[in-house]
Design a protein around this nucleic acid. Structure first.
Lengths: 359, 359
DNA sequence: CTCATCAATCAAAACGTTTTGAAAAATAAG
DNA sequence: CTTATTTTTCAAAACGTTTTGATTGATGAG
């Protein structure tokens, strides 16, 4: 049972040497004679000695770990991000430690505090409800990078333009009444809430229409949120397309559609956001925006590593594309209204409204 | 920038008291006079002092954290499990720390070693490729629970009976040529590989048929694996149903079906395993086995906590149900072959072949 | 034979806490 | 005004490492 773990002192005693000799044998920082070395390693194996992680960390003042805090990982967007982060951090031989904060705001703060009390060398904050400033305060002197999906310093993600492009794309296909389900966020630059409202207003005005604010529903990146949002929007009547701030939310649209006997894309068109692997498995396969996970993760990690090493990154921003992956959840209303009740897929037809990938 | 974090000694000096007094003020284990206490807390705030996690862990010889190691979390089954674990562990005020091992066997072992060198108080191993015995060796004296989904000690999950039930269910609906895509596992009691082969063989023999071993394809719990497995099985011809060891795999079946113009359930019936939230959002909503995540997690954590406290659990096993959640991805072939090309859903009709939930 | 050189090992300090027994100061009892 | 008691604070040890300067004994040069 609870056998006490052996310490370096136990090993030293067993091998008849001093603890420092064992340490040196292990680290190879000083010459140790062969016979002694063998004796030591034999005892290490016998006693199943493993250096205490925290004792080491305390001496070195470093743990070789990066902490990532996130609300939950049940959302495929989140879990994909985490997997990618883990792989990227491994390249720098950092281990990743994930903290799950749940939906509770308090727990997230506590977790950041906890992590940055020396538990990890650096922190990546994925909680949207905590601003970069707050995160830095919570983390004290531990380097932290936040706001990954919004405005990571060396990266430019033009959500506003994306929203315009999507609107344009749908408009060109004959959609006039378009709904949107937000993703929770504080930053005004994510295509949600205020920003989207403004852009949609402008867009519609330039086409001589007016925005009904109820066409924008508040989502929470969950399937249930997606269902509820769809319900709210569809009640408005004559809606022909909905786009969502998150694929998980968009799955909710599919669910609502099935539950209400509404066909995709014949009756309602759907556009998601993230392009999680499951998006392609839906029937019809979902048209969605591809979020550049890998690139963003690469830059996130680069930035964090630079902070850790107290280096400064070469200035300059790189703009990452967010192309629309065109599958089959968006209908061409013009063809439909022209009487031909064919599943009208914009296949082949290269469009100019938005950078896209046709699958 | 890299301002050194303040230590308890800094605080003590600043407040003109000894470090132990600060410690006591913080822990409340001894009475400290009000004015001194106030002085101390003022300085703590000023210096943004936070107790070093390791130093504390080292003294207490405990970290208050449980380590969970898993291959990846992109699979919804895995991420759901993790979220549930986190919530459950929180009830015991343990924090969860997730280690992502990727697909590399070596990294998994390393991670277990690393965790159990004092980084965490206990370990939950979710890597299927590591046996309970191996895990215990890797973890040394750190308590570890493994093999969660297969045979967690206090829990009985009858995969063999489940397989028989599913076979029966499909057979009753007129399915004769049934494929299966495995989930990777070492344990012979999971409904995959050998176990399933044997049960299918028996089942078919008792119905006067013989099993074509190619009807069992090897999956890896990925969408791609599901697509490939489906391809292999469908090539055999005349297949009317496939069931998968994992919902993610089953998503692959949907994908293959769409890509090949095969309709679900009219042409091919699909049954998944786990009942992840996304399963209901597919069109048609997927029939799948509900895995009792919450219950299993509850017992897993109970077992681990018992080990941590060096208590022994009251003996006895509890059997957890794995009901079939009947949605709309399985067709009634009898009605179909009777000429009526109606989407034949076994709705309402209570069947006796398998415990089920009809949605 | 003496002194310098080198290899191998050790002892002690340090990392930042908590804990405990003891000291000092304040209060109460006689 | 002692003495006992209580309250408040301190000093030192301990946790398990790593690091560094010192010590020992052996080896080689002169």
């Amino acid at each position: 049972m609870g056998k006490q773990a052996a310490t370096i002192v136990d090993v030293a005693r067993a091998a008849g040497v001093s603890p420092s000799t064992v340490s040196h044998a292990l680290s190879g920082k000083r010459e140790i004679s062969l016979p002694v070395k063998e004796r030591i390693f034999k005892k290490i194996r016998e006693l199943d000695y493993r250096p205490s992680f925290y004792a080491q960390a305390m001496k070195r003042n470093s743990t070789g770990m990066i902490g990532v805090v996130v609300n939950e990982c049940r959302n495929p967007s989140a879990s994909l991000f985490l997997d990618t982060l883990a792989a990227e951090l491994e390249k720098y031989s950092y281990k990743i430690v994930i903290g799950l904060a749940g939906l509770d705001h308090r727990k997230g703060e506590e977790l950041l505090r906890h992590f940055s009390a020396g538990l990890v060398d650096g922190v990546i904050n994925l909680l949207p409800q905590i601003t970069p400033e707050e995160a830095q305060i919570l983390c004290g002197s531990t380097p932290v990078v936040t706001n990954i999906r919004e405005k990571l310093i060396p990266v430019r993600l033009d959500y506003d333009q994306l929203t315009r492009n999507i609107l344009n794309y749908l408009w060109d296909l004959g959609h006039r009444r378009i709904g949107y389900i937000t993703s929770p966020s504080r930053d005004p630059h994510r295509p949600d809430g205020e920003a989207t409202r403004q852009i949609m207003t402008e867009f519609l005005k330039s086409h001589g229409e007016e925005l009904d604010p109820r066409m924008i529903a508040e989502g929470d990146d969950s399937i249930e949120g997606g269902i509820a949002g769809t319900e709210q929007i569809m009640r408005l009547g004559n809606i022909t397309a909905i786009f969502a701030g998150n694929d998980q939310t968009a799955f909710g649209i599919y669910r609502w559609a099935y539950l209400n006997g509404v066909r995709i894309p014949d009756d309602i068109s759907v556009i998601g956001f993230d392009d999680v692997p499951q998006a392609a498995t839906l029937i019809p396969p979902m048209t969605t925006v591809r979020f550049p996970v890998q690139e963003l993760v690469t830059h996130t990690v680069k930035l964090l590593i630079a902070k850790l090493r107290q280096e400064t990154l070469p200035p300059g921003q790189i703009t990452l594309d967010m192309p629309l992956v065109i599958r089959h959840s968006v209908a061409d209303r013009k063809r439909i209204s022209a009487g031909r009740r064919k599943k009208a897929l914009p296949s082949g037809k290269k469009n100019k409204t938005i950078p896209s990938i046709i699958l």
